[in-house]
Nucleic acid binder design. Structure first.
Lengths: 108, 108
DNA sequence: TTTATTCATCGTAATATTACAATTAACAAA
DNA sequence: TTTGTTAATTGTAATATTACGATGAATAAA
């Protein structure tokens, strides 16, 4: 099918899954890392850094914007992207909390 | 295409993306949470808990095993699953490090 | 006005993912 | 040996994702 049954999961589970998607492709990891390392918001030189077509980079940026973890400021003819702190911190908290719920136990 | 160009990314970026995939579907998040909450390793009652067909659950378990974040112990006719601590901690470290590299700056 | 630059969007092709029914495999118990 | 139970695997259908060329929109500069 390829169609996730979101209705049978909690809102939290669906949100975590969505936030994880921001990191679930190496190109998006690379984009996020670039946006962080160049403290100033990088624009389309992402295309130069990544060996991907401009349309492909734009598509990944769109997905990151949909999730909310980055924001873009139009500054014609350029667009300036950067991490969106509230959502970044939301992800940090959500994953941090999830990771912390596991306490190693002898098992199986 | 649907075919990720893994060769143009670093090993670290590809690994983070792979680890993120463990959390990038709400069913897998639910499975991981169940494996954690029932400290004893749950087996196929995952199928009862999740409103998903057995084959679907098995497929998600296979993906989680591929990533390495869970392990299964065959205990016929049952299989006992649990979190694989080293990989869980690898993910915790990897995401923790990534989250910490971002320091909020005024931007755009 | 024309031209150049940057980036989003559209269209398209190929592969991946999600989901499930049906089957198979592996074993315990009768 | 036969039967029952559990879970993996297979086959299949439908949707999603990834990637890119081409086009379009928006604006600055000439």
């Amino acid at each position: 099918m390829g169609l996730t049954k979101t209705e049978i999961f909690t809102q939290e589970q669906n949100r975590i899954a969505d936030l994880a998607k921001a990191f679930a492709h190496p190109a998006r990891v690379a984009i996020l890392q670039l946006l962080i390392s160049r403290k100033a918001c990088v624009c389309g030189d992402l295309v130069d850094e990544l060996e991907l077509a401009q349309a492909t980079v734009s598509q990944h940026l769109k997905e990151l914007k949909r999730i909310g973890i980055i924001q873009g400021e139009i500054n014609p003819p350029r667009v300036c992207y950067c991490i969106n702190p509230p959502v970044w911190e939301e992800a940090q908290r959500a994953f941090g909390a999830l990771f912390d719920t596991f306490v190693p136990v002898t098992c199986c």
